[in-house]
Design a protein around this nucleic acid. Structure first.
Lengths: 152, 152
DNA sequence: AAAAATTTGTTGCATAAGTAACGATAGACT
DNA sequence: AGTCTATCGTTACTTATGCAACAAATTTTT
């Protein structure tokens, strides 16, 4: 399987930043996904929704979308599933009845705290596997990309 | 919208490495996806397949899977579409007739070189927007994660 | 050499995701 | 008040994805 060197202007996929970031993100995410999948049969949108509500305590679907960058249909469906599971409750806003305020039930909080703990351990493992210098480089470059992507 | 500080063990989503990597990857990829989408109506699996064949010149579906980390059904369908578009041709291996060798047609090569060029410019823009020091940090940390994920 | 197991690539089916349209509500404009 | 526009969240429809089963070819085992 020879490299095609007809044209030296070529950019191998494995050197392409979009591809490399995707690979890294996907592999890391999947490794964590195993946790919430095996523990609660959750999907990624469900975990992110749970995490966002858990983090803010009281929040609306729209705010979850903004904070987690998920599509509103994803969030809507995740909320539905979490509600079925009795992990959250909705309260209609009395000043604007289009809006629903979401809060975790005790069960929901329990699951959130448990998974949050797993997430922190997972992250600690990654950082210590990387070592302090690589971890610092990762932090620096992620911040730089975040600023690039989302300039305040 | 107050932070929920009942429990200090909580890990905010925006500090979670899996989430941050995904955001970065998704945003960067989508910005590049605009290019191949608007130019040729291509999908991401199609672009990756085109890029992989273009890079190796002559390759099989299985090898594309291995090199690009895409699921074999994704690759199979991308090959089908690229073939319809007359961007690649298949040749059955004479020693093992399960295997098909894939090569780009002239049209396929043209599209590949064009998009490869766009990709390089895109990448150059990102690196220069990041600046040399952040770009170096990104390179370092991506390599570190790649080693972690895929230890040879 | 026949049977069993493996490999390559495709396809049927079920699930996930996004677009666009929607109902319900609220706000702005005349 | 009445109309027009915008917003919040849901849903119908279409497309994308992945698993599992598959056919065809090859390799291994007996």
């Amino acid at each position: 399987m020879d490299q095609n060197n007809i044209n030296e202007a070529v950019l191998p996929l494995e050197n392409f930043i979009a591809y490399r970031l995707n690979q890294a993100a996907e592999k890391v995410s999947q490794r964590f996904a195993i946790e919430y999948k095996k523990r609660h049969g959750m999907t990624r949108p469900e975990w992110r929704t749970l995490a966002t509500i858990g983090q803010f305590g009281n929040i609306t679907a729209k705010q979850i979308c903004q904070h987690s960058s998920m599509h509103k249909t994803k969030v809507s469906r995740a909320i539905f599933t979490l509600e079925q599971r009795r992990w959250l409750k909705r309260t209609v806003d009395q000043n604007d009845r289009r809006v629903e305020h979401l809060e975790l039930t005790l069960q929901g909080q329990k699951a959130y705290l448990e998974l949050s703990d797993v997430a922190r351990n997972f992250q600690d493992q990654i950082y210590s596997a990387l070592g302090p210098s690589n971890a610092a480089a990762l932090e620096t470059s992620l911040e730089a990309i975040e600023t690039l992507i989302d300039p305040q």
